[in-house]
Design a binder for these strands. Structure first.
Lengths: 248, 248
DNA sequence: GTTGTCTATAAAATCGATTATATGTTAGTT
DNA sequence: AACTAACATATAATCGATTTTATAGACAAC
């Protein structure tokens, strides 16, 4: 069976449900639980070290969001992935993300600008590859990457756009993580560059940042669209883990 | 306390969680549980006649979708409503709905057309007002109304559009149900028309249907946008229940 | 050999009881 | 009177056990 990255790790004030939710989601997005795989609550209970109630609540939430499929009387399954689903996810994500930046650019104040610049700086200063394991992306980079993109849309006022957008961002991250294309790309990238170089997307991010600062929403949207479709192309470039049949 | 419309009513094959989910959602959308209201699990347990587990699972799902707010260690609350939220909901809903019809028009076959026509016919043949209580909308009309709009987008292939769109449709129904404007409108409508007349939106629906059948997506989008904003105007026309402070 | 039914087993769903956390109240201090 | 601390109460969150439902395997009938 797949080895879950996280067992018990409860922060203060949080509820166990919230913890399991985060851990489960992280493990699904990072591919510990593969698409289509059965999620036997008995096993999960042991792995995450909680009782059924918080576990099932977390699974229910994940099912409502779309990362998990809940079938009555037949338990939970990791949401499957496919090429069509990738295309769909990227398409809707792009649309929503463009709406989000556009609004963000309209509403953003100086603090918003400052936070974007700060987020970009953190991202640009972080090694793309994990120093310990140059075949995988640094978790810190992943965090900062997410935070940078979040900072772009932080001034968007729309409750629903932000909510939907986040779901789709996470789903795209799952595709990235399960993509052989990305893995292969990272290997060759590691060979070409020595150590703590800039990441291969840094130029993209810089351009997007500049467009946002220039309040040029049209340009920002176009750049984001390109940035996103580049990702899709890499994912599609090689057969990917999400295309395999689910194994138990 | 508010009187929940439904107690136990379990269909065969379904899980209790799914039942409570549906009943709770219906009661929230129909205003039995008002926006901002606390949802004490102990009380709900009695009202819906289930134990904590399925109840909390249902609440978790509702929280993930956005109809309920879950605060760690402080339980569940009905999602609040406001004018801004109404505007936002309608705006995003309109965008998604237009994408959905456009795609549906691209992909729809003769069956799709037939189902739309059938759904429209059912809707047009149903009295808008409840014969028993002419101050409220007939539940049958509400069902057929939803089914008609669903039929329009039924040929849309996008998983995410359909999913998000449904959430927003339900949220808009909640606004309609809690709107004094709609209530007032229904009263005057009941006076003007005698009995089983066509509903006030029938012309709108007919136009939208025709545009869809003519495969004119641009026109369909415009009509839908108008149709939706008419609803928003009515809701905003008078002070509404969702604008009141939540009472226990 | 295939199909169908029954049984045994495993898994999911649900319950009632327990524990942990928050909230409200009272008493004590300045 | 205002503030704080300790307690009591109410509510939420969690657990372990029970019940229900699905699934796999054996056996019988055709």
């Amino acid at each position: 069976m797949a080895r879950a990255s996280t067992a018990a790790k409860k922060e203060q004030g949080k509820t166990k449900t919230a913890d399991v939710y985060e851990n489960l989601k992280r493990d699904i997005v990072s591919g510990v639980w593969m698409p289509g795989t059965k999620l036997p609550i008995g096993d999960l209970r042991d792995v995450y070290d909680v009782s059924l109630s918080p576990l099932r609540e977390a699974l229910s939430r994940l099912a409502a969001v779309g990362f998990v499929i809940a079938e009555g009387q037949r338990g939970f399954t990791v949401a499957p992935m496919s090429e069509e689903h990738l295309i769909d996810t990227n398409r809707i994500r792009t649309t929503l993300e463009c709406m989000a930046v556009t609004e963000s650019i309209e509403n953003g104040d100086t603090d918003w600008e400052a936070n974007m610049i700060a987020a970009f700086h953190r991202l640009a200063s972080t090694s793309y590859l994990d120093p310990e394991d140059p075949s995988s992306t640094s978790t810190l980079w992943t965090t900062y990457h997410k935070e940078f993109h979040d900072s772009l849309v932080a001034a968007c006022q729309s409750f629903w756009i932000l909510r939907f957008r986040e779901t789709l961002s996470d789903e795209m991250e799952r595709f990235r993580n399960l993509s052989y294309g990305f893995t292969a790309r990272k290997r060759s990238y590691a060979k070409a560059h020595s150590k703590k170089d800039a990441d291969p997307f840094e130029l993209d991010h810089k351009k997007i940042l500049d467009a946002a600062l220039a309040r040029d929403s049209e340009k920002a949207c176009k750049l984001i669209e390109k940035h996103f479709s580049k990702t899709v192309e890499i994912v599609l470039a090689e057969k990917s883990a999400f295309a395999e049949e689910a194994l138990s």
